[in-house]
């Protein structure tokens, strides 16, 4: 039984590849995103994220492998996929002369809604993404962040089961980011499948349940991601007494060469949460005043850096 047959709905990608002439944008991508979860798609620039997104969005044909969106193949059942999938592109395009409200009304009617349903739906979404004040303004006057909200609203217009969000947070102010995160979590709670591609890794850390890492057109296996999560990463320790901290660290068995200073803090590589807890207990037992003790990089950033450096070596 293949993965696609086991999973109902969601996104199932198996060994998908796509090249443009000599450029192999996506060589072998496989992952599964389950309904009710938020999956992050991360990778360096030019790693094939956007090409993969376009294939998922039913705009580009894969050359091999299979894709299932909400149970349908975008190649054979394009309309079924499109009626169940919402796509927010990284390119912010809008019909410049139309108002925010009529943009959404047109988008709704493109999904076959009648006039009154479309206008009710547009009204709901204007409220949802917090653009009610600008509903009557032409879209050309919107700021980048406001266009981003409009783009999200358009992706949601037909209440899709599967959401593909390409860089949804770029251009948003901190308040709007929080709002976006809550919104995305709420959609997941409603049972939607959400795939978020982003460079803002701390952001994804807060909203993603799982992560797909892609580099050079190849997705990293789940084991590789799990391994890199467990691998040593720097922790940031702050103390008012730097010298005492350094000697306490060395007494805990950490080589002097491994300790690096970063402004007032010291960075120490630790493998996993267990090692961190043990070290913290030791430091406090030694009477060193500790004011901060935390990973220096987020989970995803660590995975990202670990996997990209692993590929290069």
């Amino acid at each position: 039984m293949t993965v696609a047959q086991q999973v109902e709905g969601g996104i199932v990608v198996e060994h998908v590849r796509r090249s443009f002439g000599e450029v192999h944008a996506v060589r072998d991508a496989s992952f599964t995103a389950l309904p009710g979860t938020v999956t992050g798609l991360i990778g360096p620039n030019g790693s094939g994220k956007t090409t993969l997104m376009l294939m998922l969005a039913s705009l580009l044909q894969p050359e091999g492998g299979s894709i299932r969106i909400a149970g349908f193949d975008p190649m054979d059942a394009t309309a079924e996929v499109r009626s169940r999938m919402g796509w927010m592109p990284d390119v912010l395009g809008s019909w410049a002369n139309l108002s925010v409200r009529s943009t959404l009304e047109y988008a709704a009617r493109m999904y076959g809604m009648d006039r009154s349903t479309a206008s009710a739906r547009a009204e709901d979404l204007v409220q949802l993404v917090d653009l009610a004040d600008l509903a009557a303004s032409p879209t050309r006057v919107l700021s980048r962040g406001q266009k981003q909200k409009l783009s999200l609203a358009r992706a949601l217009i037909h209440d899709p089961e599967v959401l593909l969000l390409d860089e949804p947070a770029s251009g948003l102010d901190p308040g709007a980011r929080t709002q976006l995160r809550l919104l995305v979590r709420r959609f997941a709670a409603e049972g939607k499948t959400i795939l978020v591609s982003s460079h803002v890794l701390t952001e994804l850390d807060e909203m993603a349940d799982g992560v797909v890492y892609i580099d050079g057109g190849v997705t990293a296996s789940e084991e590789a991601v799990a391994r890199s999560r467990a691998s040593a990463r720097p922790w940031r320790i702050r103390s008012s007494d730097g010298e005492a901290l350094r000697s306490a660290l060395m007494s805990a068995g950490i080589a002097s060469a491994e300790i690096t200073a970063d402004r007032k803090d010291l960075l120490v590589p630790l493998s996993g949460e267990g090692a961190a807890a043990t070290l913290l207990a030791h430091l406090i037992g030694s009477g060193v005043p500790i004011s901060a003790f935390a990973p220096a990089v987020g989970d995803l950033e660590h995975t990202f850096l670990d996997l990209s450096s692993g590929d290069q070596s």
């Binding site: 705009l59 499109r82 796509w87 395009g93 019909w95 410049a96 076959g112 783009s151």
Partner: peptide, 13 residues
């Protein structure tokens, strides 16, 4: 160029 073609093509149009 305006970025509105793909968002139309991804609908049921």
């Amino acid at each position: 160029d305006a970025g509105t073609l793909a968002t139309t093509q991804v609908t049921l149009i």
